[in-house]
């Protein structure tokens, strides 16, 4: 098990290009990449949002502070990033409005990168959401936040094994102190531009009956929508009777979600997309 890097290690590592970072606040008419910020309530998502964009949204030690969707931006290495702070949710499978907003944005909004903010002190519960997001999109970065709290509670997280298990980059951070933020920005950049190719973890422990139903449905989906990246997740949603997904299947909207392989977009960043 690898010890945690001492605080400040990120500031000297080559990933730290603070000179390249520009916080754009809400001024971002032209952007190249969209980054979604998802996570459990009360994991410091809003704090991270503020330190990435330089905005000052109110944050509090309460689950469920962010109710409306906040947007901001930053620029890094010549690319402009639009950052969308999604409402904090424990899950994406239930029916609350918050979860629908988050779910629809990650699926239909097609963010170039989804950052999943994780509370290192409640890893297990947070991983539940991570697994759900990874079913929808493989283009993700896990931000292992509140590392300072984890250290205070004598918890050690082996972020390398975690990255291997999840198949996406994992960045330890303490957003309140700004620790890990430069590294996170660099990882976002790498995933967005295809420098890091993700092999996202997929749910493995479902009971046989469910597994059978899903694979049958995935087969049918494959015929209707070849190359759909998240067919398994779509199948699960159909089995749960998600009306929004049914509509997307019926109208063929789902076909629009088949995107070019990761990284292909980098060749010619779309100026002022959206």
């Amino acid at each position: 098990m690898k010890p945690n890097p001492p605080p400040g290690a990120c500031e000297i590592c080559p990933a730290h290009h603070s000179a390249n970072l520009k916080r754009l606040g809400v001024n971002m008419d032209r952007y190249h990449f969209v980054v979604a910020l998802a996570g459990n309530p009360n994991t410091g998502k809003s704090t991270l949002f503020n330190s990435l964009t330089g905005l000052r949204q109110h944050t509090g030690n309460w689950p469920g502070k962010t109710v409306t969707r906040a947007e901001g931006g930053f620029a890094y290495q010549g690319s402009n990033y639009k950052l969308v702070d999604l409402p904090g949710t424990y899950s994406l499978l239930s029916t609350s409005t918050d979860e629908e907003i988050a779910r629809d944005f990650i699926l239909f909004g097609q963010p170039d990168v989804t950052v999943i903010v994780v509370d290192a002190t409640r890893l297990e519960r947070n991983l539940n959401l991570v697994c759900q997001v990874l079913e929808i999109t493989g283009r993700a970065v896990v931000c292992l936040n509140l590392m300072d709290e984890a250290e205070r509670h004598r918890l050690t997280v082996d972020e390398r094994s975690l990255a291997r298990e999840l198949g996406v980059p994992v960045v330890p951070a303490a957003a309140r102190q700004g620790r890990g933020v430069p590294m996170l920005i660099d990882m976002i950049h790498q995933v967005a531009t295809g420098g890091f190719v993700c092999k996202p973890h997929r749910i493995q422990s479902e009971p046989p009956a469910l597994k059978r139903a899903v694979s049958l449905l995935v087969e049918k989906l494959g015929a209707a929508f070849p190359d759909l990246p998240n067919a398994r997740w779509v199948a699960l949603r159909l089995l749960e009777g998600d009306a929004r997904i049914e509509e997307a299947v019926r109208s063929g909207e789902l076909a629009g979600l088949v995107r070019a392989p990761q990284g292909a977009a980098t060749a010619a960043p779309a100026e002022g997309a959206g």
């Binding site: 918890l155 082996d158 749910i203 469910l210």
Partner: peptide, 28 residues
């Protein structure tokens, strides 16, 4: 699949989450 799909899906997710967490988390 039956009426307890949501239950078994949540169980599957948490089983995975717990397995991963056990592997990467160590407590002093």
């Amino acid at each position: 699949v039956g009426p307890d799909l949501h239950d078994s899906l949540m169980e599957a997710l948490y089983t995975d989450a717990a397995r991963i967490s056990d592997r990467v988390l160590s407590r002093d």
